[in-house]
Design a protein around this nucleic acid. Structure first.
Lengths: 256, 256
DNA sequence: CGGATTTTTGAAAAGTGTCAAGGCGAGTGG
DNA sequence: CCACTCGCCTTGACACTTTTCAAAAATCCG
């Protein structure tokens, strides 16, 4: 297989890409429902039939943007594999990653019916497969299926609760507490998916973690080192983290 | 009218109150619909009839809690007058105010159907009138009225977008930028309600603003002083703010 | 007017950011 | 197979912003 040689976009300020999509592969996407946590999983027959007619699989390579702040928002997405960061930036380039998303997560909350454009940027951290739905039929399906409506609202509610915790972290926790909180959340995420909590594999760089925690990459690195010195974690390479003592990690995270 | 002499709860860690409610006055509440931005405004007849049977007015005096983290969450609310803070706290007392709410705002987003207890504390900043709905009938009304469902989801979406901006602020803005952002949002809020942007009247103390911006009250105060020195605002008392130069204030807020 | 609360201001301390150098690991090409 | 390069991570030293502690000024309210 020959690999076409085009550069991944430069990191700090990702330029607008001609087309962020590598390719629409299958049509419709058949993988949206396989994740038990997905918004499509266990959907009633009618709603699913409607959606199946309009959805598409998309594949993104690492660093590609699914969309960018200011892009027209005419699709919603479900991640079937890989990880994505959602971020907002200030005009001078300072960036805040509001959340890291993985398989089963839904992209499209935070879009009021009157919002025609994205306020966030979605960037692939790994190779990512998403299932894409045009917004209009998705909205219709949501209104016709009480179950889908409930599910979206439930996702939105949990997002709001999570955003609150993130605000508490950003506003009130110290650097080490933030790093510990970050690791704990990653561990909980693993558990939600039936994976063991402990050997974490991080898909994101120190810089991306920093942009999520409101720190610099150096401070994040020092945080990891601190936790390692304390014996709470073990690092095998920068992206492989073993949690030795969840209780102590919870204390170090600020106890919440 | 005699006022019963009971102390408002001490500030830093509000103790569990026997009953946070001063009184349920009218039943049903007739004021929920008067705010054009309220979730009840313009609701279709059936949905409104259902809700009208179960809602109640509640009045809270300043500093009273509507509910606290851990309380059973069996109502949702609409504010008809006054202002409320929603906050989360760490076990050691550090507090983050996730948002300030006013007339027309809805309280109850962030509650997944499976969440039986509040993760937030709601405290009255001023005398507050809220319209309260038991959760179960409200949820039913939501499922039977597509319009109400849409409205709640729209509120949730806007909340999510706002939370993102707040995260960007907490993670990446300097102290002065945060204070400027805070004033700008207060100004926009005024405008949304048809009031002039400029002479702001702040219902919250420096400490509460600090807990919202992830700063200390001293730093917030210095922020105000700085903006005053720069001629961007004028202060008539701590709670009366005139915005002299919205453009410049926007720049100082980080330009977003 | 007077006491209490809140706000403002100042000075010192702490925490995090910035700048710079070196290390580690993965992928490349000789 | 090994040396090299490149990107990312770690660590150190210092600078800067914000916090902390303290006191004075302003405001509120009886």
């Amino acid at each position: 297989m020959t690999v076409i040689a085009f550069e991944p976009p430069p990191r700090p300020v990702a330029p607008r890409l001609a087309g962020p999509v590598r390719g629409a592969i299958t049509d419709p996407c058949v993988n949206c429902t396989v994740r038990p946590l997905s918004i499509c999983a266990g959907l009633d027959h009618d709603a699913w039939e409607r959606l199946k007619r309009v959805n598409q699989t998309m594949v993104l390579e690492p660093r590609r943007l699914l969309f960018q702040e200011g892009d027209p928002a005419d699709h919603v997405y479900t991640i079937t594999s890989g990880q994505i960061s959602l971020s907002m930036s200030l005009p001078d380039g300072r960036r805040q990653i509001t959340e890291f998303l993985g398989p089963g997560d839904f992209i499209g909350l935070g879009l009021d019916s009157e919002m025609t454009h994205h306020t966030l940027t979605a960037e692939a951290l790994t190779e990512v497969h998403v299932c894409r739905f045009p917004r209009a039929p998705f909205t219709r399906a949501m209104e016709q299926s009480a179950q889908l409506g409930r599910k979206v609202l439930s996702f939105a509610s949990r997002r709001i609760a999570a955003a609150g915790e993130q605000q508490l972290m950003l506003g009130r926790k110290t650097a080490v507490e933030r790093v510990a909180s970050f690791l704990l959340r990653a561990a909980r995420r693993n558990e939600e998916r039936g994976a063991p909590a402990s050997p974490l594999t991080l898909a994101m760089t120190r810089n991306e973690i920093a942009d999520h925690l409101g720190l610099t990459l150096e401070t994040v690195s020092r945080g990891f080192s601190r936790l390692r010195q304390l014996g709470v974690i073990r690092l095998d390479g920068a992206d492989r983290v073993t949690l030795n003592d969840l209780g102590r990690l919870r204390e170090l995270a600020g106890g919440d």
